[in-house]
Structure formats: C-alpha cells, structure tokens
Design a binder for these strands. Structure first.
Lengths: 224, 224, 224, 224
DNA sequence: CATGAATGAGATTTCATTCAT
DNA sequence: AATGAATGAAATCTCATTCAT
C-alpha cells in the first residue's frame, strides 16, 4: 500500500495516460489538500452523514463545483482523504522504525506512533475511527485497500520476529496481524468514544506488553 | 446488559407501566420476530442503505404499515434486531460457559461460541460486522449499550483469571478486554469481507492461544 | 335547517328506507352521543389534524371499529357533531326568542344567546370557531348547509324588523344577515384565539348596538 | 405590519445579518414570485390538500428541488404567498386612501378596494377565503400576524372617525374593527362559495352604508 | 479556472377503514 | 353488537452532480 499511497506523488513516468496526469497535477495543487483538510474538519464536526459536499466546499473556501475539478465524486474525496492521511501516517511510522532493531521494539514503536499521531490530530481520529466506518461496503473495501500497506508492515515485523527467534515459530502471521490491528483499533475507538478523556499514549506500553507476549516473546517473562 | 437483554422475556412483574407492557406484548407476538428475521435477511442481501422498510415488510410477508405496529420507526427495528440477536448470542455463550472451570478455558469457549454462532448464521454475521456499522452515531451508541453486556462478561472472565492466578496480576482488565474483543471482531470482519471463504471456527484455538499468552497464562509455554 | 337538524330525531315516517331507519335508530343509542362528545373533546384538545379516529374511539371508550357502526366515515362524525350541537344551539335560541317582541330585541337575545352558549362550552367554541374550519371545502359546504337554518332565522328577524318599521326599508336582507353573522363570528373567533381571556357575554350589548344602528334602527339615536 | 410586509422590499440596510440578506436576495429573484403565483393557481384549482409541492413546481416550470432554494418548506410557501399578496393588497388600499379625506369615505374606499382586488383575482380570493383556512393552527397564527397590519389600518380609520366627530364617541374601536372585518370577510366568503356568480363590487356601497351607520355616522340619516 | 443555481430521484411514516373473530 | 389487528396509498424534502456563464 505504501507504494499505492505514494503512487501519485512520486510519479514521474511519462507513459501514464493524460487522464491520470491531470489528476496527478491536481493532487499537487494547493486546493487539493485544502479540500481534504476541509473534509476532515467537516466530517469530524458534523458526522459522516451530515458532511455534505456543499459544507466541505464552504469550509474549504471554494464553490461546490470546484470540488469536482479535483475529485471525481464525493467518494473520491473520502478515499483521497484516507490515502493522503494514511500515507503520511505510515511514512512517519516507517521513518521511526528505521532506528529500531528488534521486532518487539518495532512493535512498540509502531503502537506508540499510531497512538501519538492520532492523539495529535483528534479530528483525524474521529474521522477514521468513527465517521468513515459509516460509509457503505464498497467504500470500506476501497479504504481497506489503502489500509493494506499498513497491515503488510505489521506482518513484516511479525515475520521478522519469527525469523529472528523473538516470536514463537508456531505464530500464525495473519492472525497475529489481525490481533495487533484489532487491538490497536479497538483501543483507539474506545478512546475516541470516551471523548479522548484519558491519555492514549500511555496505553502503548501495556498493550505492547500483551502483544509481545501473545506473539510468544519471552522478554517479559519473569526470570527464575 | 445481560439483564437488559433478557428484560422483556423474563418479565412477570405486574408493577411495570402500561406503556412497557404494550411493548412487551408486542415483543412476544410472532410477527415481531418475523419482522426482525426479515430485516436480517434484507439487510444482509441488500446492504444497510438499500434495506427499505417496504423490502423488509415484503420479506416478512406483512404490509408496510404493520411494521409500525411493532416498531416505533426504522431505527427501532435495527436496535431491536441487535437486542434480540445479541441477547440470544450472549445467553448461549453464558450457558456454555457454565460447564467450564478455568478462565483460560472460558476464554476458549467464548471465542469458539462467538465464531460458531456467526459461522452458522452468515446473514447475521454480515449484518453485525459490516452493515449495522453504517448506522449513524446515535444508533451506534444504542448498539454499544447492548454490546456492553458482552464486554462485561469478558471482563468478568479476565478478573477471574487474575484472581485465580491463571493470568498475570499486572494485567490491565480493561485493556485486555479491548484486546480480546478487538481481536475477535477484526478476525470475524476479515472473514466476512473475504466472503467467508475459510473456516472461521478453526481460528478459535490459535487466537485463544495468543489471547491466553497475552494475559500471561503459562499453560502454553514450553516446559524446559 | 332547523328542520333538517331535527330531521332524524322527530321522524316517525314509515316510508323511509330501511337504511335510514338503521341510522335513526343509531342516533338514539347512547354510544352515538358518546362518540360525538368524545370527538368534541379530542378535537378541542388536539386540534383538527391530530384528531384521529382511534383517539376519538379511545376517548369514547369504544373500539375503533365500533365508530363505523354509528358513522359512515370520519367526515360523518364531524357533520353529525355539527348537526347535533347546532341543533341544540338553534333550538335554545328559538325558545328564548319566543319571549321577545321587537326585532331589535330579538337581535339582542340572539347575540346574547350565541355568546352565552359558546362561553359555557369552550370545547365546542374551539371546535366550531377554529378546528372545524380546517376541514376541506367539501365538508365545509356540508357544514354550511347545517348553518343555513341559523342564517335563515337571522334573516327572518331582519325581515320582521323591516316589516314592522324598526329597520330601514332600504336594508338588504341578505347583506344584513351576512353582516350580523360575520360580526358575531369574528367576535367569537377573536375571543377564542385570545384564549377566552375576557368575558364574551358583555360584548353582546355593544355589538347589538352597532348591528341595530346598521339596520337603521333609531332607538339608540339621541333624542334632540 | 405594513412595515413588516414591506420589510424585504424596501430594505437597504447593510447592518442586517447575512442570513436575512440571503433570504432577501431570494425574494427579489424572479423565481420567487413565479413559484408563489404558481402556488396560488394550483391551490385555487386543486384545493389546499391537493396542492402538492410537485404540482406547484410543475406549474412554476421549475424542478421540485428548486422550490427549496427559495422556501424553507411547504408551509413557508404559503406564508410567503400570504405576505406577498397581502403586502400588495394593503399597499394598494393605502395608496387609494391617501386621496380621501373623511373616515367614512376611507371606509368606503377600503371596502371597495378590498372587493375590487379580490374580484380581479378570483384565484387569490379562493385561496385566501377558503383554502388557506384549512392550514393548521400554527400556520394560521402566522397568517394572522400578517393580517394584523390590515386590521390596524381599519382601527386607525375608526379612531380617526371618532376623533373627527364623524363616528360615535362611544364606539368600541376593537369591536367596530371586528365588525368591519367580519362583515367584509363573510361577504367575500359567501361570494366565493357561490362561485362568484354575482358582482361583488356593487355590494361595497350598501355594506359601507351599514358599517357607517353602525359606527354612528349621521350622513345617511334622513334629514327631517 | 471557478462559480453556484438548478436538477430530480427516492423513502419513511400515518391513519382511515375493513373484516375475521 | 363489538373488537382491534392489519392494511397500503401517498407526499415532503435532501443533496450529489452538472453545466452555462
């Protein structure tokens, strides 16, 4: 996915169709990001079903019709939103991961970064945890495509842990990834639904503790 | 919640208000369940936003207006659906749990039962994992109220495991519950989104394995 | 109209069809009046558009279906209501008029009685002045038929006044009747819309004063 | 009220809120009046309850949705209709009144203009006398607010008559106004219900005669 | 490039009336 | 005679998208 997220931004390939070039150019224009940021605010503050195109346009300071110069339709705004934000999100995590060695530590950094980034942008947290899930099945499948890069990253860490002997060799990679993502996701959702009353970041360590143990890491076990 | 789910069914108390009696009577009439079952089918096959009241009525074999003799409005159908199904769901799990001793085993039975029940009723699985999440925030809050009973049950098992020395005494109950529910939920959702291609039930054991280890259970650790 | 209002009640004529006899018999049964009185209360308290048949049935203490044993349809309730109440209303005024000699005095008694009867039954006042006017054109035409007897009574008094030399011989009977009814009606409506805050009865004399002068009566003119 | 009716049309005041400016701009666009005129025709020809928004839109030559760019909801069409038409109605009468001196003559002109304007626009007459009265209480209260300006105008004339010694000094202003409006209104309603068979305009003089006498004007009294 | 007025399809809910018991 | 559960037709309003300017 990381590829797919960075797709448009890194692209220099002349062989792409004129159509896509048009879109690529648009993605670099200031109004593109302006509209996406407006969408995040409007959805977070009004909820998914009350986030009309006209509201997003007003928040972005453009006319309704202008939206359609940058996005194919409303769904495209939401997918692009997810791509943009998720792209940055995963990029940041990947950068941080480079400074870490063991799989267990990478897991910790991933969880910490996940929490940190959503803690810092509660609008985005509300949108991704609550509002965007109200979209229809079709859109959620597309969102899952975007998410796939992040899930792959998790699976890579797990594989590394198994290979390096940190994690149990019987571990089912796919299930472990579903556990890690499911746990992180449920934790953030609960935090958002509780109106961010408590500090999300301090949950990273105990959650990492559970995840590592679940993966068969022995580092937390009491030495006799 | 378990109480609240069983609320109407077990009630014999004459002191309840006329209003509630009216509703209770309706809940016990055959058409009530008939409409709910129709709603599950229609939502699963058409998607949340394409599940018009008229479709549900037709599927249930009643007139559109009849729906409104049993339900306040469309949202009420969905809440009642969740209450009825979740009620049976949790009741079944509770019954099975009575035959089990240790917290770890209870966790296994819970996961197995969770998977078994949704495996057996894929319509219901689709509705709870994908479609009902498209409902608006207000409805989701009501659904969460119903869910709370299930989450409490999980927490009770965790507490028991800690008390009995099966689970680590440092375990954060609330986080552990979020992990268990998040993991199970993500697993089922992935399975539904993959169109139930594989056997969900056989995932119960490996997932239980991870959960138990995450909780600090030693039963899976290799004896040296 | 007075005839038409008393129509059913005074009827002994064997030549009427079986159908009508059925209705006549019904009109004398207690539930007939019971339902009409319920309708007055329900309409006054809930408004015309919130006066559902089921509400009237509940207020009358009968089943919905029972209404249709006594009335052809909902409109028939309202027409019957108007006939019953208007019949009594006009009968009472006619009785009082018998004790009065001059046209001017008859006018005064009519106005006084009109006000007195509506003052005493504010439910009825609300229904006739505000709520029943929301009915559709067709029903209002039928109501006007019932009203006709009352209007005829007014015209008779005016004619008498002209014949006896009390009123101007140039007076247009029909217009004078429209003035009298229009004035009384507007006065009562204003009173009802002001939530019966003031005493309606004490308006009878000044209004009569104006009506009599308008008719050319000299009795109030200052003697030089 | 006269002010309130002219409110939007005369306004040049920059200090008004953005919201109201939006509405004012809409009120001056051609489609606003186009829709109102369509509403008058549709309501007159189909009756209040058969005047669906889609019929009004079709008659106005716009899409259903366009209605909602100019009116908050269906009720708002009706209120605006009444405001627009009543505004013009009262303005016209006020203009004509400027050329008249005595209160009695003003009363005559008022009645003549009232009849003339409704005679010339029978659609409007049907709507105001019959159809709009079927609206619910809430709407009728709003209509009454609009009407208030007209009633105030009547009261002003009456007051003038009293002050100038034309009318009896014992005259109750409020009752006199209720008489005048009630009489005019009843006359027009009767005329409309008789399907405008006769000439309404020629009733102005005899009605004025009665009204003036009722107010104590001596001008019609035979000089001995 | 940008605008924003106009479009029009589509669904929930109410309630008078019926009719089997 | 009385019941009351069931019926089903019908209409307002929203909002994503377009296109003339």
């Amino acid at each position: 996915m990381i590829g797919s997220i960075n797709y448009y931004r890194n692209m220099n390939d002349d062989s792409f169709s004129f159509f896509w070039k048009g879109i690529i150019v648009k993605r670099n224009r200031p109004k593109f990001k302006q509209i996406i940021d407006a969408a995040v605010v409007v959805i977070a503050e009004n909820g998914y079903h009350q986030a009309q195109v006209s509201k997003i346009a007003k928040q972005a300071g453009v006319a309704d019709g202008t939206i359609y110069l940058y996005f194919k339709n409303k769904e495209d705004i939401l997918i692009s939103l997810f791509q943009e934000k998720m792209g940055t999100f995963v990029e940041t995590i990947e950068t941080e991961l480079k400074q870490v060695k063991t799989a267990s530590d990478k897991l910790l950094v991933l969880i910490q970064q996940h929490f940190a980034q959503l803690s810092e942008d509660t609008h985005l947290a509300i949108v991704t945890q609550l509002e965007l899930r109200q979209s229809n099945k079709e859109l959620r499948i597309k969102i899952n495509d975007v998410l796939k890069g992040y899930l792959d990253l998790m699976e890579k860490i797990i594989q590394e842990g198994i290979t390096e002997g940190e994690f149990s060799e019987e571990l089912d990679k796919k299930l472990a990834r579903q556990m890690i993502f499911g746990t992180i996701d449920e934790t953030v959702t609960t935090w958002v639904m509780n109106e961010q009353k408590y500090n999300l970041n301090q949950l990273a360590k105990p959650i990492h503790h559970m995840m590592a143990r679940a993966c068969g890491s022995q580092i937390f076990e009491k030495k006799v």
